[in-house]
């Protein structure tokens, strides 16, 4: 059962600010969704490997060779705010 506190904690981790009303809605929806996930508990998965990659691809590596960087104007072309060739952000603390 997901409580209001859990929803608030998850929202904080996700960097989402929810109103009290939204917290209640999310709690209700998440609980409903997670209820349907409960059937997973019925399956015995002992000894089953978790499958993170569907294709048996491994060791994909590249050589240590320098390629092209982007011109700085391009790097910053979508920057909401910039100064001195860098991305400007509000104060950290």
């Amino acid at each position: 059962m997901i409580t209001k506190e859990v929803v608030e904690k998850v929202a904080k981790l996700s960097r989402l600010e929810l109103t009290e009303e939204e917290v209640a809605v999310h709690a209700e929806q998440l609980n409903k969704i997670l209820e349907t996930m409960d059937i997973l508990k019925q399956i015995d998965t002992d000894g089953i490997e978790p499958l993170a990659h569907v294709l048996p691809i491994q060791n994909v590596l590249r050589e240590d060779e320098v390629g092209e960087c982007m011109p700085r104007e391009k790097v910053l072309s979508n920057a909401p705010e910039q100064a001195d060739g860098m991305f400007q952000v509000p104060k950290i603390v």
């Binding site: 997973l40 508990k41 998965t45 089953i48 978790p50 499958l51 993170a52």
Partner: peptide, 11 residues
């Protein structure tokens, strides 16, 4: 993790 194991069963 459980979901990844189930994924294997489905495969």
């Amino acid at each position: 993790l459980k979901a990844l194991k189930v994924r294997n069963l489905i495969k």
